[in-house]
């Protein structure tokens, strides 16, 4: 059964990698639309569709891995789940509109809406994850408004936003921002310490247990930032790998508890008969995606036509 939750973590990591990069794109489009639009747009189309599907894949992967948890998820997180779904609907719609009825002011307006929708999704998702881990804003199977407006959640959101921007700058090789990316990444990582330190005692334990992986992760980022600084193209793909590994490391550190340690995920695992097939199917889909995504990206970007 270890295999099952490991696969679930991989799916989560892949989703977050794509989403964080998209979050960075959304921020950059608001920061410097005219300067970056062409470059960022050519990435985001058609990857936004894959990111959205990955969100559902993760939700389903979680449902098949921990079906008994769905009662709590459905009841407690009903409002954030719908807010996210609602803004995904807007994000998809505005991206499609900008692609086909764009041009000039309309395109700018639609992409602004896309960016704002994506940032709202990021904020609600971060808040939900923060509460699911820390229990802040949760009591008696209910959420109160403090689940979104608390200093831990806000610092987590800002830190992820800065990391997302830094990663996007590196990935898209935005030369004029070469120092900014280092600064953003450094502040983002520094800020990340605040929610992590406050979240829950069990996470501190995880950090102690996996300190060497955390150090390796930071060193890896430093190497990527240096490569980016010296204009090495490899920095772009490596930053994606770093995001993927970092999210996976985060999963490793916080597993197997949720809600401040009140929930032990092991108690909610699916029955072994179903789990066996769920694990295989999830792994096969994931493997096929890992193979097909780079092919798709290479193919589409190499042969982009003005569709």
């Amino acid at each position: 059964m270890d295999f099952l939750y490991a696969i679930n973590h991989l799916v989560f990591s892949a989703f977050m990698t794509l989403f964080i990069l998209e979050f960075g794109v959304a921020c950059l489009l608001l920061i410097d639309y005219d300067g970056l639009k062409d470059k960022l747009r050519s990435y985001i189309n058609p990857i936004w569709g894959i990111t959205g599907t990955f969100a559902v894949f993760y939700l389903l992967s979680t449902a098949v891995t921990y079906p008994a948890l769905m009662g709590i998820v459905g009841n407690v997180f009903i409002v954030p789940l719908f807010v996210v779904a609602f803004f995904i609907l807007l994000r998809n719609a505005f991206m499609a509109y900008s692609e086909y009825i764009g041009g000039g002011k309309n395109e700018k307006l639609y992409l602004r809406f896309f960016s704002i929708s994506t940032i709202v999704i990021a904020f609600v998702l971060m808040s939900t994850f923060a509460t699911a881990i820390s229990e802040v804003g949760y009591s008696n199977l209910q959420l109160d408004l403090s689940f979104m407006a608390n200093p831990y959640n806000i610092s987590l959101f800002i830190s992820i936003a800065l990391i997302a921007i830094a990663a996007s700058v590196l990935y898209f090789d935005i030369r004029k921002s070469e120092k900014f990316e280092l600064l953003a990444a450094a502040i983002g990582l520094a800020l990340l310490i605040i929610p992590t330190a406050v979240f829950a005692g069990y996470m501190r334990q995880g950090i102690v247990s996996y300190w060497y992986l955390i150090v390796a992760d930071i060193v890896f980022l430093a190497v990527i930032a240096t490569l980016g600084y010296f204009d090495k193209k490899i920095a772009g793909p490596l930053v994606m790998l770093w995001l993927f590994l970092s999210v996976n490391l985060f999963c490793l550190v916080q597993y197997p508890y949720l809600l401040g340690g009140k929930i032990n995920l092991v108690d909610y695992l699916v029955n072994p008969a179903t789990g066996f097939y769920d694990g295989i199917v999830t792994a096969v889909i994931f493997a096929l995606l890992v193979v097909s995504l780079p092919i798709l990206m290479k193919f589409v970007y190499a042969n982009r036509r003005g569709y």
Binding site: V56, A68, M70, G71, V73, L81, A85, F86, N92, T274
Partner: peptide, 25 residues
Amino acid sequence: TASGMLVAVELFALWPSFMVLVGQV
């Protein structure tokens, strides 16, 4: 896609006990 995603979320959020059983089987 977005509409399908919304329906997926609805299944989890509106019918939690259903999803618990379906998730196991």
